[in-house]
Design a protein around this nucleic acid. Sequence first.
DNA 1: ACGCGATGAAGATCACCAAACTCACCACCT
DNA 2: AGGTGGTGAGTTTGGTGATCTTCATCGCGT
Lengths: 251, 251
Amino acid sequence: METIERQGEAEGPGIEKRPRVRRNVTAAIAQDICADRYPSGSPLPRENDLCELYGVSRTVIRESLKVLESKGLVRGKPRVGTTVCDKDDWNILDADVLEWMGPYIKDFDLLGCILEARRTIEPAAAEYAAERASAQEIADLDNAWRQMRDSAHDPEGFTDADVMFHTVLLTASHNQVFRRLSSAIHAALKYALHASNIGVENREDAVLVHGQLVEALRMRDKAGARDCANRMLDLAVRDLAAAEKAIGRTK
Amino acid sequence: METIERQGEAEGPGIEKRPRVRRNVTAAIAQDICADRYPSGSPLPRENDLCELYGVSRTVIRESLKVLESKGLVRGKPRVGTTVCDKDDWNILDADVLEWMGPYIKDFDLLGCILEARRTIEPAAAEYAAERASAQEIADLDNAWRQMRDSAHDPEGFTDADVMFHTVLLTASHNQVFRRLSSAIHAALKYALHASNIGVENREDAVLVHGQLVEALRMRDKAGARDCANRMLDLAVRDLAAAEKAIGRTK
DNA sequence: ACGCGATGAAGATCACCAAACTCACCACCT
DNA sequence: AGGTGGTGAGTTTGGTGATCTTCATCGCGT
Protein backbone atom coordinates (compact mmCIF):
# COMPACT_ATOMS: atom_id res chain seq x y z
CA MET A 1 0.00 0.00 0.00
CA GLU A 2 2.79 2.36 0.83
CA THR A 3 3.54 3.37 -2.70
CA ILE A 4 5.53 6.51 -2.30
CA GLU A 5 9.22 6.21 -1.80
CA ARG A 6 10.62 9.24 -0.16
CA GLN A 7 14.34 9.19 -0.41
CA GLY A 8 14.95 11.12 2.77
CA GLU A 9 12.16 9.43 4.65
CA ALA A 10 14.45 8.37 7.48
CA GLU A 11 12.69 9.10 10.72
CA GLY A 12 15.97 9.02 12.48
CA PRO A 13 18.37 11.92 12.80
CA GLY A 14 20.47 12.91 9.84
CA ILE A 15 19.72 15.23 7.03
CA GLU A 16 15.92 15.11 6.73
CA LYS A 17 15.77 15.80 3.00
CA ARG A 18 12.38 16.92 1.78
CA PRO A 19 12.70 17.53 -1.92
CA ARG A 20 10.08 18.02 -4.58
CA VAL A 21 7.50 16.04 -2.82
CA ARG A 22 4.35 17.16 -4.55
CA ARG A 23 5.12 15.78 -7.99
CA ASN A 24 5.81 12.42 -6.43
CA VAL A 25 2.69 12.46 -4.33
CA THR A 26 0.52 13.39 -7.28
CA ALA A 27 2.02 10.59 -9.32
CA ALA A 28 1.67 8.17 -6.42
CA ILE A 29 -2.01 8.86 -5.94
CA ALA A 30 -2.60 8.76 -9.68
CA GLN A 31 -0.82 5.47 -10.01
CA ASP A 32 -2.77 4.05 -7.10
CA ILE A 33 -5.92 5.06 -8.91
CA CYS A 34 -4.71 3.54 -12.16
CA ALA A 35 -3.83 0.35 -10.33
CA ASP A 36 -7.44 0.20 -9.17
CA ARG A 37 -6.41 0.47 -5.55
CA TYR A 38 -9.02 3.21 -5.44
CA PRO A 39 -11.68 1.74 -7.71
CA SER A 40 -13.42 3.89 -10.23
CA GLY A 41 -16.55 5.48 -8.84
CA SER A 42 -15.73 5.05 -5.18
CA PRO A 43 -14.55 7.69 -2.79
CA LEU A 44 -10.94 8.40 -1.95
CA PRO A 45 -9.95 8.49 1.70
CA ARG A 46 -10.46 11.77 3.48
CA GLU A 47 -7.83 14.40 2.86
CA ASN A 48 -6.54 14.05 6.40
CA ASP A 49 -6.15 10.32 5.94
CA LEU A 50 -4.34 10.82 2.67
CA CYS A 51 -1.92 13.04 4.55
CA GLU A 52 -0.95 10.13 6.73
CA LEU A 53 -1.05 7.58 3.93
CA TYR A 54 1.41 9.48 1.82
CA GLY A 55 3.26 11.14 4.63
CA VAL A 56 2.77 14.74 3.55
CA SER A 57 0.85 17.73 4.71
CA ARG A 58 -2.69 18.50 3.74
CA THR A 59 -1.65 21.37 1.48
CA VAL A 60 0.33 19.02 -0.69
CA ILE A 61 -2.53 16.55 -0.80
CA ARG A 62 -4.93 19.26 -1.80
CA GLU A 63 -2.68 20.58 -4.56
CA SER A 64 -2.29 17.07 -5.83
CA LEU A 65 -6.01 16.47 -5.77
CA LYS A 66 -6.59 19.71 -7.64
CA VAL A 67 -4.21 18.58 -10.34
CA LEU A 68 -5.83 15.18 -10.56
CA GLU A 69 -9.22 16.82 -10.69
CA SER A 70 -8.08 19.10 -13.48
CA LYS A 71 -7.19 16.05 -15.49
CA GLY A 72 -10.51 14.36 -14.87
CA LEU A 73 -9.25 11.50 -12.73
CA VAL A 74 -11.19 12.50 -9.66
CA ARG A 75 -14.01 14.81 -8.83
CA GLY A 76 -14.06 16.60 -5.51
CA LYS A 77 -17.42 17.61 -4.19
CA PRO A 78 -17.57 20.14 -1.40
CA ARG A 79 -18.00 18.61 1.99
CA VAL A 80 -18.65 15.09 0.80
CA GLY A 81 -15.28 13.95 -0.39
CA THR A 82 -13.30 13.16 -3.49
CA THR A 83 -14.46 10.34 -5.73
CA VAL A 84 -12.65 8.61 -8.54
CA CYS A 85 -14.19 9.42 -11.89
CA ASP A 86 -15.20 6.88 -14.45
CA LYS A 87 -12.36 6.08 -16.78
CA ASP A 88 -14.35 7.53 -19.66
CA ASP A 89 -13.90 10.95 -18.14
CA TRP A 90 -10.16 10.75 -17.76
CA ASN A 91 -8.22 13.05 -19.97
CA ILE A 92 -6.34 10.25 -21.64
CA LEU A 93 -4.73 12.61 -24.10
CA ASP A 94 -2.80 14.26 -21.30
CA ALA A 95 0.84 13.31 -21.21
CA ASP A 96 0.93 13.04 -17.42
CA VAL A 97 -2.13 10.81 -17.29
CA LEU A 98 -0.63 8.49 -19.86
CA GLU A 99 2.59 8.46 -17.90
CA TRP A 100 0.75 7.56 -14.73
CA MET A 101 -1.23 4.83 -16.42
CA GLY A 102 2.07 3.44 -17.49
CA PRO A 103 1.98 -0.32 -17.45
CA TYR A 104 -1.74 -0.39 -16.68
CA ILE A 105 -2.39 1.15 -20.08
CA LYS A 106 -3.13 -2.23 -21.54
CA ASP A 107 -5.81 -2.90 -18.93
CA PHE A 108 -8.06 -0.47 -20.69
CA ASP A 109 -8.26 -1.00 -24.44
CA LEU A 110 -6.25 2.15 -25.00
CA LEU A 111 -3.62 0.54 -27.19
CA GLY A 112 -6.17 -0.55 -29.73
CA CYS A 113 -7.89 2.81 -29.66
CA ILE A 114 -4.67 4.67 -30.13
CA LEU A 115 -3.66 2.46 -33.00
CA GLU A 116 -7.04 3.00 -34.58
CA ALA A 117 -6.64 6.72 -34.16
CA ARG A 118 -3.19 6.57 -35.65
CA ARG A 119 -4.59 4.75 -38.67
CA THR A 120 -6.85 7.68 -39.37
CA ILE A 121 -4.59 10.48 -38.32
CA GLU A 122 -1.05 9.64 -39.31
CA PRO A 123 -1.69 9.22 -43.04
CA ALA A 124 -3.39 12.59 -43.08
CA ALA A 125 -0.61 14.09 -40.98
CA ALA A 126 1.95 12.67 -43.37
CA GLU A 127 0.14 14.25 -46.26
CA TYR A 128 0.05 17.63 -44.57
CA ALA A 129 3.68 17.24 -43.62
CA ALA A 130 4.52 16.59 -47.25
CA GLU A 131 3.33 20.03 -48.17
CA ARG A 132 4.22 21.95 -45.04
CA ALA A 133 7.31 20.43 -43.40
CA SER A 134 10.21 22.83 -43.06
CA ALA A 135 13.70 21.86 -44.12
CA GLN A 136 14.66 21.68 -40.47
CA GLU A 137 11.82 19.33 -39.67
CA ILE A 138 12.75 17.05 -42.54
CA ALA A 139 16.30 17.06 -41.26
CA ASP A 140 15.10 16.15 -37.77
CA LEU A 141 13.05 13.36 -39.25
CA ASP A 142 16.06 12.14 -41.12
CA ASN A 143 18.12 12.17 -37.94
CA ALA A 144 15.51 10.19 -36.10
CA TRP A 145 15.42 7.73 -38.96
CA ARG A 146 19.19 7.34 -38.90
CA GLN A 147 19.05 6.68 -35.21
CA MET A 148 16.43 4.02 -35.79
CA ARG A 149 18.56 2.45 -38.47
CA ASP A 150 21.70 2.50 -36.36
CA SER A 151 20.12 1.07 -33.23
CA ALA A 152 18.52 -1.96 -34.79
CA HIS A 153 20.11 -4.02 -32.05
CA ASP A 154 19.34 -1.61 -29.22
CA PRO A 155 15.64 -1.90 -28.38
CA GLU A 156 15.74 1.06 -26.02
CA GLY A 157 17.33 3.40 -28.49
CA PHE A 158 15.15 2.10 -31.28
CA THR A 159 11.93 2.88 -29.43
CA ASP A 160 13.19 6.33 -28.48
CA ALA A 161 14.05 7.07 -32.08
CA ASP A 162 10.71 5.72 -33.25
CA VAL A 163 8.85 7.93 -30.80
CA MET A 164 10.93 10.90 -31.87
CA PHE A 165 10.19 10.17 -35.50
CA HIS A 166 6.45 10.16 -35.04
CA THR A 167 6.53 13.20 -32.80
CA VAL A 168 8.43 15.19 -35.39
CA LEU A 169 6.13 13.92 -38.10
CA LEU A 170 3.07 15.18 -36.27
CA THR A 171 4.80 18.46 -35.56
CA ALA A 172 5.67 18.77 -39.24
CA SER A 173 2.01 18.44 -40.13
CA HIS A 174 1.74 21.92 -38.64
CA ASN A 175 -1.60 21.07 -37.14
CA GLN A 176 -1.75 21.76 -33.45
CA VAL A 177 -4.39 19.15 -32.79
CA PHE A 178 -2.36 16.41 -34.40
CA ARG A 179 0.75 17.63 -32.65
CA ARG A 180 -0.91 17.21 -29.28
CA LEU A 181 -1.60 13.56 -29.98
CA SER A 182 2.07 12.75 -29.99
CA SER A 183 1.98 12.09 -26.25
CA ALA A 184 -0.57 9.35 -26.80
CA ILE A 185 1.51 7.80 -29.54
CA HIS A 186 4.54 8.14 -27.33
CA ALA A 187 2.85 6.18 -24.58
CA ALA A 188 1.49 3.59 -26.97
CA LEU A 189 4.85 2.92 -28.56
CA LYS A 190 6.65 2.93 -25.27
CA TYR A 191 4.40 0.48 -23.50
CA ALA A 192 3.33 -1.68 -26.40
CA LEU A 193 6.43 -2.30 -28.45
CA HIS A 194 8.78 -2.03 -25.56
CA ALA A 195 6.75 -4.52 -23.56
CA SER A 196 6.94 -7.10 -26.29
CA ASN A 197 10.44 -7.00 -27.62
CA ILE A 198 9.73 -7.21 -31.31
CA GLY A 199 12.19 -9.05 -33.45
CA VAL A 200 15.01 -7.52 -35.42
CA GLU A 201 13.45 -8.34 -38.77
CA ASN A 202 10.33 -6.35 -37.84
CA ARG A 203 12.56 -3.45 -37.01
CA GLU A 204 14.28 -3.69 -40.36
CA ASP A 205 10.94 -3.50 -42.12
CA ALA A 206 10.04 -0.47 -40.07
CA VAL A 207 13.33 1.25 -40.83
CA LEU A 208 12.74 0.72 -44.51
CA VAL A 209 9.29 2.25 -44.55
CA HIS A 210 10.26 5.12 -42.30
CA GLY A 211 13.10 5.93 -44.67
CA GLN A 212 10.76 5.89 -47.62
CA LEU A 213 8.48 8.29 -45.81
CA VAL A 214 11.30 10.73 -45.26
CA GLU A 215 12.13 10.51 -48.93
CA ALA A 216 8.52 11.14 -49.90
CA LEU A 217 8.42 14.21 -47.68
CA ARG A 218 11.59 15.49 -49.25
CA MET A 219 9.98 15.08 -52.66
CA ARG A 220 6.82 16.80 -51.41
CA ASP A 221 5.00 13.69 -52.57
CA LYS A 222 1.70 13.74 -50.73
CA ALA A 223 0.33 10.50 -52.11
CA GLY A 224 3.60 8.73 -51.46
CA ALA A 225 3.77 10.03 -47.92
CA ARG A 226 0.24 8.87 -47.20
CA ASP A 227 1.05 5.50 -48.66
CA CYS A 228 4.18 5.12 -46.56
CA ALA A 229 2.27 6.08 -43.42
CA ASN A 230 -0.29 3.42 -44.19
CA ARG A 231 2.36 0.79 -44.64
CA MET A 232 4.03 1.95 -41.44
CA LEU A 233 0.76 1.39 -39.64
CA ASP A 234 0.32 -2.02 -41.17
CA LEU A 235 3.55 -2.91 -39.44
CA ALA A 236 2.34 -1.33 -36.22
CA VAL A 237 -0.83 -3.43 -36.37
CA ARG A 238 1.26 -6.52 -36.83
CA ASP A 239 3.51 -5.55 -33.91
CA LEU A 240 0.59 -4.83 -31.62
CA ALA A 241 -0.99 -8.17 -32.47
CA ALA A 242 2.31 -9.84 -31.67
CA ALA A 243 2.57 -7.90 -28.44
CA GLU A 244 -0.91 -8.87 -27.35
CA LYS A 245 -0.24 -12.46 -28.14
CA ALA A 246 2.95 -12.27 -26.11
CA ILE A 247 1.10 -10.71 -23.20
CA GLY A 248 -1.60 -13.32 -23.48
CA ARG A 249 1.05 -15.99 -23.30
CA THR A 250 2.80 -14.60 -20.26
CA LYS A 251 -0.47 -13.97 -18.47
CA MET B 1 -6.43 44.65 -15.22
CA GLU B 2 -8.65 43.66 -12.37
CA THR B 3 -10.24 40.75 -14.12
CA ILE B 4 -11.71 38.76 -11.31
CA GLU B 5 -15.10 39.71 -10.08
CA ARG B 6 -15.64 38.54 -6.57
CA GLN B 7 -19.22 38.89 -5.63
CA GLY B 8 -18.51 39.54 -2.01
CA GLU B 9 -15.45 41.67 -2.61
CA ALA B 10 -16.81 44.54 -0.53
CA GLU B 11 -14.02 45.80 1.69
CA GLY B 12 -16.56 47.31 3.99
CA PRO B 13 -18.44 45.47 6.69
CA GLY B 14 -21.28 43.19 5.74
CA ILE B 15 -21.32 39.57 4.94
CA GLU B 16 -17.85 38.90 3.47
CA LYS B 17 -18.87 35.99 1.27
CA ARG B 18 -15.96 33.85 0.25
CA PRO B 19 -17.33 31.10 -1.95
CA ARG B 20 -15.65 28.73 -4.34
CA VAL B 21 -12.89 31.13 -5.01
CA ARG B 22 -10.23 28.89 -6.44
CA ARG B 23 -11.98 27.88 -9.64
CA ASN B 24 -12.57 31.50 -10.43
CA VAL B 25 -9.03 32.52 -9.68
CA THR B 26 -7.62 29.75 -11.84
CA ALA B 27 -9.86 30.78 -14.69
CA ALA B 28 -9.01 34.43 -14.17
CA ILE B 29 -5.27 33.87 -14.34
CA ALA B 30 -5.69 31.56 -17.30
CA GLN B 31 -7.80 34.07 -19.14
CA ASP B 32 -5.31 36.82 -18.41
CA ILE B 33 -2.66 34.60 -19.93
CA CYS B 34 -4.81 33.86 -22.96
CA ALA B 35 -5.49 37.56 -23.37
CA ASP B 36 -1.74 38.07 -23.56
CA ARG B 37 -1.74 40.22 -20.48
CA TYR B 38 1.06 37.95 -19.34
CA PRO B 39 2.88 37.42 -22.62
CA SER B 40 4.10 34.02 -23.59
CA GLY B 41 7.61 33.38 -22.36
CA SER B 42 7.72 36.07 -19.74
CA PRO B 43 7.47 35.65 -16.02
CA LEU B 44 4.29 35.94 -14.00
CA PRO B 45 4.31 38.23 -10.99
CA ARG B 46 5.53 36.73 -7.76
CA GLU B 47 3.09 34.60 -5.86
CA ASN B 48 2.72 37.23 -3.17
CA ASP B 49 1.91 39.85 -5.76
CA LEU B 50 -0.62 37.56 -7.39
CA CYS B 51 -2.29 37.26 -3.99
CA GLU B 52 -2.92 40.98 -3.95
CA LEU B 53 -3.78 41.16 -7.64
CA TYR B 54 -6.51 38.60 -7.36
CA GLY B 55 -7.41 39.25 -3.78
CA VAL B 56 -6.93 35.76 -2.42
CA SER B 57 -4.49 33.97 -0.17
CA ARG B 58 -1.27 32.47 -1.36
CA THR B 59 -2.54 28.92 -0.91
CA VAL B 60 -5.24 29.52 -3.48
CA ILE B 61 -2.75 31.10 -5.87
CA ARG B 62 -0.47 28.13 -5.49
CA GLU B 63 -3.20 25.60 -6.13
CA SER B 64 -4.22 27.56 -9.18
CA LEU B 65 -0.68 27.72 -10.50
CA LYS B 66 -0.30 24.00 -10.01
CA VAL B 67 -3.38 23.39 -12.10
CA LEU B 68 -2.21 25.75 -14.80
CA GLU B 69 1.17 24.09 -14.75
CA SER B 70 -0.44 20.69 -15.11
CA LYS B 71 -2.10 21.88 -18.27
CA GLY B 72 1.10 23.27 -19.73
CA LEU B 73 0.18 26.94 -19.60
CA VAL B 74 2.93 27.91 -17.21
CA ARG B 75 6.06 26.38 -15.86
CA GLY B 76 7.11 27.11 -12.31
CA LYS B 77 10.74 26.81 -11.46
CA PRO B 78 11.86 26.82 -7.84
CA ARG B 79 13.26 30.11 -6.63
CA VAL B 80 13.03 31.83 -9.99
CA GLY B 81 9.33 32.21 -10.52
CA THR B 82 6.59 31.07 -12.81
CA THR B 83 6.87 31.74 -16.52
CA VAL B 84 4.25 31.49 -19.22
CA CYS B 85 4.95 28.63 -21.59
CA ASP B 86 5.00 28.89 -25.32
CA LYS B 87 1.57 28.31 -26.80
CA ASP B 88 2.87 25.21 -28.55
CA ASP B 89 3.19 23.54 -25.17
CA TRP B 90 -0.34 24.29 -24.06
CA ASN B 91 -2.58 21.30 -23.74
CA ILE B 92 -5.10 22.61 -26.22
CA LEU B 93 -7.08 19.39 -26.15
CA ASP B 94 -8.02 20.02 -22.54
CA ALA B 95 -11.59 21.16 -22.09
CA ASP B 96 -10.68 23.74 -19.45
CA VAL B 97 -7.95 25.26 -21.55
CA LEU B 98 -10.29 25.61 -24.48
CA GLU B 99 -12.86 27.15 -22.21
CA TRP B 100 -10.34 29.65 -20.91
CA MET B 101 -9.16 30.53 -24.37
CA GLY B 102 -12.75 31.26 -25.15
CA PRO B 103 -13.02 34.19 -27.49
CA TYR B 104 -9.27 34.38 -27.96
CA ILE B 105 -9.39 31.02 -29.66
CA LYS B 106 -9.37 32.62 -33.03
CA ASP B 107 -6.18 34.54 -32.24
CA PHE B 108 -4.25 31.34 -32.63
CA ASP B 109 -5.15 29.41 -35.77
CA LEU B 110 -6.91 26.81 -33.71
CA LEU B 111 -10.19 26.94 -35.59
CA GLY B 112 -8.52 25.99 -38.84
CA CYS B 113 -6.52 23.25 -37.16
CA ILE B 114 -9.57 21.81 -35.49
CA LEU B 115 -11.52 21.82 -38.72
CA GLU B 116 -8.65 20.12 -40.46
CA ALA B 117 -8.58 17.52 -37.72
CA ARG B 118 -12.30 17.03 -37.97
CA ARG B 119 -11.96 16.45 -41.71
CA THR B 120 -9.69 13.53 -41.07
CA ILE B 121 -11.29 12.21 -37.93
CA GLU B 122 -15.03 12.57 -38.19
CA PRO B 123 -15.47 10.52 -41.38
CA ALA B 124 -13.53 7.71 -39.77
CA ALA B 125 -15.47 8.12 -36.55
CA ALA B 126 -18.73 7.98 -38.50
CA GLU B 127 -17.61 4.78 -40.12
CA TYR B 128 -16.72 3.19 -36.80
CA ALA B 129 -19.99 4.44 -35.37
CA ALA B 130 -21.84 2.76 -38.22
CA GLU B 131 -20.60 -0.59 -37.07
CA ARG B 132 -20.41 -0.05 -33.33
CA ALA B 133 -23.08 2.43 -32.23
CA SER B 134 -25.54 1.06 -29.71
CA ALA B 135 -29.27 1.50 -30.14
CA GLN B 136 -29.22 4.00 -27.30
CA GLU B 137 -26.52 6.04 -28.97
CA ILE B 138 -28.41 6.13 -32.24
CA ALA B 139 -31.46 7.25 -30.33
CA ASP B 140 -29.44 10.02 -28.64
CA LEU B 141 -28.15 11.06 -32.02
CA ASP B 142 -31.67 11.13 -33.32
CA ASN B 143 -32.76 13.28 -30.41
CA ALA B 144 -29.96 15.72 -30.99
CA TRP B 145 -30.90 15.82 -34.65
CA ARG B 146 -34.54 16.53 -33.83
CA GLN B 147 -33.47 19.33 -31.57
CA MET B 148 -31.38 20.79 -34.37
CA ARG B 149 -34.29 20.53 -36.73
CA ASP B 150 -36.73 22.11 -34.31
CA SER B 151 -34.53 25.00 -33.31
CA ALA B 152 -33.72 26.23 -36.79
CA HIS B 153 -34.69 29.69 -35.64
CA ASP B 154 -32.95 29.50 -32.26
CA PRO B 155 -29.19 29.91 -32.84
CA GLU B 156 -28.37 29.11 -29.24
CA GLY B 157 -30.31 25.90 -29.14
CA PHE B 158 -29.13 24.94 -32.58
CA THR B 159 -25.48 25.20 -31.63
CA ASP B 160 -26.07 23.25 -28.45
CA ALA B 161 -27.79 20.50 -30.38
CA ASP B 162 -25.05 20.50 -32.99
CA VAL B 163 -22.39 20.14 -30.31
CA MET B 164 -24.37 17.37 -28.69
CA PHE B 165 -24.73 15.59 -32.02
CA HIS B 166 -21.03 15.54 -32.70
CA THR B 167 -20.19 14.58 -29.14
CA VAL B 168 -22.50 11.61 -29.29
CA LEU B 169 -21.17 10.69 -32.71
CA LEU B 170 -17.63 10.56 -31.40
CA THR B 171 -18.77 8.61 -28.38
CA ALA B 172 -20.57 6.17 -30.65
CA SER B 173 -17.33 5.52 -32.51
CA HIS B 174 -16.32 3.71 -29.33
CA ASN B 175 -12.81 5.00 -29.66
CA GLN B 176 -11.59 6.74 -26.56
CA VAL B 177 -9.14 8.93 -28.42
CA PHE B 178 -11.79 10.24 -30.74
CA ARG B 179 -14.18 10.69 -27.88
CA ARG B 180 -11.72 12.94 -26.10
CA LEU B 181 -11.62 15.29 -29.05
CA SER B 182 -15.21 16.28 -28.57
CA SER B 183 -14.17 19.09 -26.23
CA ALA B 184 -12.14 20.62 -29.03
CA ILE B 185 -15.02 20.33 -31.45
CA HIS B 186 -17.29 21.72 -28.80
CA ALA B 187 -15.12 24.80 -28.44
CA ALA B 188 -14.72 25.20 -32.16
CA LEU B 189 -18.43 25.05 -32.83
CA LYS B 190 -19.26 27.27 -29.93
CA TYR B 191 -16.85 30.02 -30.74
CA ALA B 192 -16.83 29.83 -34.52
CA LEU B 193 -20.40 29.30 -35.56
CA HIS B 194 -21.85 31.14 -32.65
CA ALA B 195 -19.62 34.13 -33.28
CA SER B 196 -20.80 34.44 -36.84
CA ASN B 197 -24.51 33.88 -36.84
CA ILE B 198 -24.87 31.66 -39.86
CA GLY B 199 -27.99 31.99 -41.92
CA VAL B 200 -31.07 29.85 -41.63
CA GLU B 201 -30.55 28.26 -45.04
CA ASN B 202 -27.13 26.98 -43.94
CA ARG B 203 -28.75 25.46 -40.93
CA GLU B 204 -31.32 23.74 -43.08
CA ASP B 205 -28.57 22.17 -45.16
CA ALA B 206 -26.87 21.01 -42.01
CA VAL B 207 -30.05 19.51 -40.61
CA LEU B 208 -30.54 17.58 -43.83
CA VAL B 209 -27.08 16.04 -43.84
CA HIS B 210 -27.13 15.29 -40.14
CA GLY B 211 -30.40 13.46 -40.61
CA GLN B 212 -28.95 11.43 -43.44
CA LEU B 213 -26.04 10.49 -41.23
CA VAL B 214 -28.37 9.20 -38.55
CA GLU B 215 -30.17 7.17 -41.17
CA ALA B 216 -26.91 5.74 -42.47
CA LEU B 217 -25.91 4.72 -38.95
CA ARG B 218 -29.25 3.05 -38.44
CA MET B 219 -28.65 1.10 -41.66
CA ARG B 220 -25.11 0.26 -40.50
CA ASP B 221 -24.01 1.75 -43.80
CA LYS B 222 -20.34 2.54 -43.31
CA ALA B 223 -19.72 4.09 -46.68
CA GLY B 224 -22.85 6.17 -46.43
CA ALA B 225 -21.93 7.38 -42.98
CA ARG B 226 -18.48 8.39 -44.12
CA ASP B 227 -19.97 10.19 -47.07
CA CYS B 228 -22.44 12.07 -44.90
CA ALA B 229 -19.69 13.10 -42.53
CA ASN B 230 -17.68 14.44 -45.42
CA ARG B 231 -20.61 16.46 -46.68
CA MET B 232 -21.23 17.73 -43.15
CA LEU B 233 -17.68 18.94 -43.05
CA ASP B 234 -18.00 20.61 -46.41
CA LEU B 235 -20.71 22.68 -44.82
CA ALA B 236 -18.53 23.33 -41.80
CA VAL B 237 -15.74 24.56 -44.05
CA ARG B 238 -18.17 26.90 -45.74
CA ASP B 239 -19.44 28.16 -42.39
CA LEU B 240 -15.96 28.75 -41.04
CA ALA B 241 -15.02 30.66 -44.17
CA ALA B 242 -18.14 32.77 -43.72
CA ALA B 243 -17.32 33.29 -40.07
CA GLU B 244 -13.80 34.39 -40.83
CA LYS B 245 -15.02 36.79 -43.44
CA ALA B 246 -17.50 38.18 -40.94
CA ILE B 247 -14.79 38.60 -38.33
CA GLY B 248 -12.56 40.20 -40.89
CA ARG B 249 -15.31 42.65 -41.70
CA THR B 250 -16.02 43.61 -38.13
CA LYS B 251 -12.35 43.96 -37.29
C1' DA C 1 -43.11 12.99 9.99
C1' DC C 2 -40.80 17.12 9.97
C1' DG C 3 -37.38 20.20 11.21
C1' DC C 4 -33.48 21.63 13.87
C1' DG C 5 -29.07 21.34 15.70
C1' DA C 6 -24.65 18.58 16.21
C1' DT C 7 -21.06 16.71 13.56
C1' DG C 8 -17.68 16.34 10.45
C1' DA C 9 -15.19 17.24 6.23
C1' DA C 10 -13.75 20.37 2.66
C1' DG C 11 -12.73 25.32 1.36
C1' DA C 12 -9.85 29.11 2.59
C1' DT C 13 -6.48 31.88 5.28
C1' DC C 14 -2.41 32.73 8.03
C1' DA C 15 2.03 32.35 9.95
C1' DC C 16 6.15 29.76 9.71
C1' DC C 17 10.09 27.07 8.44
C1' DA C 18 13.13 24.93 4.87
C1' DA C 19 15.70 24.88 0.83
C1' DA C 20 17.75 26.50 -3.09
C1' DC C 21 18.71 29.90 -6.53
C1' DT C 22 20.58 34.80 -7.31
C1' DC C 23 23.54 38.22 -6.80
C1' DA C 24 26.80 40.96 -5.00
C1' DC C 25 30.79 41.48 -2.48
C1' DC C 26 35.25 40.42 -1.11
C1' DA C 27 39.49 37.89 -0.99
C1' DC C 28 43.01 35.80 -3.40
C1' DC C 29 45.76 34.68 -7.28
C1' DT C 30 48.07 36.20 -11.48
C1' DA D 1 45.76 46.39 -10.36
C1' DG D 2 42.46 43.52 -12.45
C1' DG D 3 40.04 39.34 -13.07
C1' DT D 4 38.35 35.04 -11.14
C1' DG D 5 36.16 32.38 -7.85
C1' DG D 6 34.07 31.32 -3.46
C1' DT D 7 31.01 32.71 0.13
C1' DG D 8 27.19 34.64 2.45
C1' DA D 9 22.96 37.32 2.66
C1' DG D 10 18.61 37.85 0.67
C1' DT D 11 14.72 36.48 -1.90
C1' DT D 12 11.26 33.36 -3.54
C1' DT D 13 9.09 29.07 -3.94
C1' DG D 14 8.19 24.40 -1.51
C1' DG D 15 6.03 22.47 2.44
C1' DT D 16 3.78 22.33 7.24
C1' DG D 17 0.26 22.88 10.67
C1' DA D 18 -3.19 25.41 13.04
C1' DT D 19 -7.49 27.87 12.68
C1' DC D 20 -11.77 29.60 10.89
C1' DT D 21 -15.75 29.17 7.79
C1' DT D 22 -19.23 26.88 5.36
C1' DC D 23 -22.46 23.56 4.56
C1' DA D 24 -24.03 18.44 3.64
C1' DT D 25 -25.56 14.83 6.37
C1' DC D 26 -27.34 12.44 10.13
C1' DG D 27 -29.68 11.77 14.31
C1' DC D 28 -32.49 13.48 17.83
C1' DG D 29 -36.41 15.72 19.67
C1' DT D 30 -40.96 17.67 19.19
